[in-house]
Design a protein around this nucleic acid. Structure first.
Lengths: 238, 238
DNA sequence: AATTTTTACTTGTTAATACAAGTTGAATCA
DNA sequence: TGATTCAACTTGTATTAACAAGTAAAAATT
């Protein structure tokens, strides 16, 4: 596990404040403590505090208003790596489930992979996994994940649960998942996808292809996600 | 028009470097001048330069690599306010067209608007406009735009062209469009949407609902966009 | 009681400085 | 000739400082 002292201070404050917002220490519309107050509270200087707040603003947790303060903004909850509109983080995890359809397994990269791979990734083989996410018992995401087999010993024998891929990568392999890029389209699903998502033929499916940076240069996490957006839209910022 | 001196220096450097990247002064994979070189070139200090570069990194134009440099990354081209995968900014605008379906007109807000409106927006009436975007003669976006009628005199009598809504807002009304939030879903289109996008019944359509911040507090630009993603995906960063 | 002015906050911008950690290529050594 | 070490770069983190511009509430004025 990463030592606490290895995390930069601006990042640590970011996480503290993010958690306060997500845990509803503040209400929507409240003002966060001012920059000067946060300096005093956390023993940091204003540029460091401002870097944390800039990150929170970029990610949509707060809206900064010059002369007034930083206004708290609630975001739709995250399910796996996607934010789902029509939900709130207050609901908790009770009605969330993840089914592992294909446990992590080592394969060769598909011949026509959705994103270009660098040489190291291509040569290292691919860890492949399929999961289904359910909300209130209804499957909403069919998530296929790929990552190069670089310094990931015994990953195929580990247990996986909700959102645990990120945690396992972080805690056991010191791999931090960051943002990245995505391609989005609406498709008619294959029968297989319809079966997993329990949708009728002809119902449209949202298809996301994502390439996520990691803290390890040259190593990316790739996902192909099929979404049933009939009831819940996908939420994002741009 | 905003005076040049009113734009913060970090923002100006951001725009200079962004334009250099988009205009292909640098090739994909090239290194930008180092932070220290940019300080010397533009007469700024390192924190200011770093703020510009942080913005470029956040928007996907560069990838910063500690100890190495800032690596140039080409992004898919933008058509209206969306980035379209499978295109590059080098193509130019020759095969792009915009058709105005409904000229900007003052209406009352639809009763069940897609985003909550604040009191000022609700009371000010709504400027409404519909456009169709075509690439190579093929309609790919059907874009419906709403903005509150706040300090927008004579906007309904102005001429609109490609991407000109942002320019008119900026140049004539000093309104700067920023990022915001969006909801995404896959839908079966109504016959009207099918007709505009020249799609067959049963072909799926991507539907984006966007709320964009502006530099004017409390004023937002709203868009409902229907996309034909059969040939071109929508590209985004997260 | 209403309006205006002032004060004390807030965030935004910019500069200067120092050291940490990562990368690359030249120099040195075996 | 290949391996190792070192120097000179790069970006990353953090502090200190000063002033600009926006907001809200208290105080003063009418």
């Amino acid at each position: 596990m990463l030592k606490k002292r290895d995390i930069p201070r601006h990042r640590r404050l970011y996480e503290i404040l993010r958690k306060h917002i997500v845990d509803r220490v503040y209400n929507e519309g409240d003002l966060l403590p001012s920059e000067n107050e946060l300096c005093r509270l956390y023993g940091m200087t204003r540029p460091t505090v401002r870097q944390s707040l800039a990150g929170l603003a970029a990610d949509g947790y707060i809206i900064k208003h010059q002369g007034k303060g930083s206004i708290v903004h609630y975001l739709p909850r995250e399910i796996g790596i996607l934010s789902v509109s029509g939900t709130t983080t207050a609901v908790g995890d009770r009605n969330l489930k993840t089914k592992i359809i294909v446990k992590p397994v080592l394969i060769t990269w598909p011949g026509d992979f959705m994103f270009p791979l660098n040489d190291l990734e291509r040569e290292s083989g691919c860890i492949y996994m399929e999961r289904l996410r359910l909300l209130d018992g209804v499957p909403i995401f069919y998530d296929i994940t790929y990552i190069a087999n670089i310094n990931l010993p015994r990953i195929t024998s580990r247990q996986f649960e909700d959102r645990s891929l990120f945690r396992i990568l972080r805690e056991h392999y010191q791999i931090e998942i960051k943002g990245g890029e995505q391609r989005i389209k609406a498709i008619n699903a294959t029968p297989k996808i319809n079966r997993f998502l329990k949708m009728k033929r002809g119902e449209p499916v949202l298809h996301l292809e994502r390439k996520m940076e990691t803290g390890t240069a040259g190593l990316h996490l790739y996902s192909s996600i099929f979404c049933n957006t009939a009831k819940y839209s996908i939420y994002g910022r741009f």
